[in-house]
């Protein structure tokens, strides 16, 4: 039973062409685009993902620099505050944040999807570890040459920490691409749905004659998975290395 289960992700991508005749399959894809505003969902997901990735990386780079190489009173205590945020899941904060978004009139906008996830405690933690391993002389040398903090961070530290930055980009991309709970709570208009929510809704709307439409769901699912697979194939080394490292520390 497990072996069957283990094979399926693989088969799923191949299963559609084998289970349905080639000709029909392409019609399924076309039908998906007719049935739901697929590209709208796709664009929403892409905007959400890019927004979160760009914000998270920059906020984390700056914070990691401050916590690793900066000096200000209470630095290490404030870093504990960052670490503690790691144990607070979305499911604990969503009600007040929902109310906050409603007050700001941000529900059903990209702000509600992106802004609350701007700071990633995990990202700050990982980058700080990397920055700490970079020797201070490098920074001092740059400062002597007249570089300001931003230049030191983006021109010198970031290129040196590139493997970690790449890992974070990948992890943050995958997490936001796949996120479901947050967009489900923060959006309710069809125009603002992301792929995960859109597909789940599509299932609900056809629950009665599930089987008749299952191939559409599968066709839609395949398109959702493709970016992740591509990313995975290119960045697998980074991901596995990062995960193994963070376990031991």
């Amino acid at each position: 039973m497990l072996i069957t289960a283990l094979k399926t992700p693989h088969e799923l991508r191949l299963a559609v062409p084998t289970f349905w005749p080639e000709r029909l399959m392409w019609e399924n894809f076309a039908e998906v685009f007719r049935k739901i505003p697929f590209w709208r969902y796709f664009a929403n997901t892409a905007i959400q993902t890019v927004g979160i990735v760009v914000l998270q990386i920059n906020v984390a780079l700056m914070a990691a620099y401050a916590f690793a190489k900066g000096s200000f009173p209470g630095r290490d205590k404030l870093f504990l505050l960052v670490l503690a945020a790691l144990i607070v899941p979305d499911q604990v904060t969503f009600v007040p944040v929902y109310v906050m978004m409603a007050d700001l009139n941000w529900l059903n906008t990209f702000y509600a999807l992106i802004v609350p996830h701007a700071a990633s405690a995990y990202g700050i933690f990982l980058l700080r570890q990397t920055f700490r391993s970079i020797h201070n002389d490098v920074i001092e040398a740059a400062k002597v040459d007249g570089a300001n903090r931003l230049q030191v961070l983006y021109r010198i530290l970031t290129p040196m920490a590139l493997p970690t930055v790449a890992t974070l980009v990948v992890i943050s991309f995958i997490n936001s691409w796949n996120s479901y709970f947050w967009p489900l709570v923060m959006t309710n208009s069809n125009d603002m749905r992301v792929l995960t929510v859109g597909i789940a809704m599509m299932r609900d709307s056809i629950a009665g004659d599930e089987m008749l439409n299952f191939h559409y769901l599968m066709a839609a699912s395949i398109i959702v998975i493709i970016p992740i697979i591509l990313l995975f194939v290119f960045a697998q080394k980074y991901i596995i290395a990062a995960m193994s490292n963070s376990t031991f520390k």
Partner: peptide, 17 residues
């Protein structure tokens, strides 16, 4: 130095704590 940590801290305070 603190200014660099500020965006992250503010976000965590507003959206987590």
């Amino acid at each position: 130095d603190f200014a660099f940590a500020l965006p992250a801290l503010a976000m965590l305070l507003i959206f987590i704590y």
